[in-house]
């Protein structure tokens, strides 16, 4: 259980633990439900920082119409 929130486990091997790219839609969509809502920290098991990076990346992708706001 101690390793459950380990950054290495959560990190995207392409971008590393301290970055989430808004163009990496495969990675982002892993952390969205079918409606496009971001999973909670409880579900993603991300650190505060990484959850914030995820939020930022998803919002950037939504702005560019890469991801839906709803639906």
């Amino acid at each position: 259980m101690a390793d459950y929130r380990s950054p290495a486990e959560n990190a995207n091997p392409q971008t590393g633990p301290d970055r989430i790219d808004y163009k990496d839609l495969d990675y982002l969509s892993k952390h969205l439900n079918p409606q496009g809502q971001i999973f909670s920290r409880r579900r993603t098991a991300f650190s505060t920082k990484r959850q914030r990076l995820l939020k930022q990346a998803v919002k950037r992708a939504r702005h560019l119409a890469l991801l839906p706001f709803v639906g």
């Binding site: 939504r62 560019l64 119409a65 839906p68 706001f69 639906g71």
Partner: peptide
């Protein structure tokens, strides 16, 4: 690609990086 939602009536767009 197809836009996730229509923008100014457009359903598709080309992305320039």
């Amino acid at each position: 690609r197809r836009l996730a939602y229509p923008i100014r009536g457009k359903q598709r767009g080309t992305y320039l990086l």
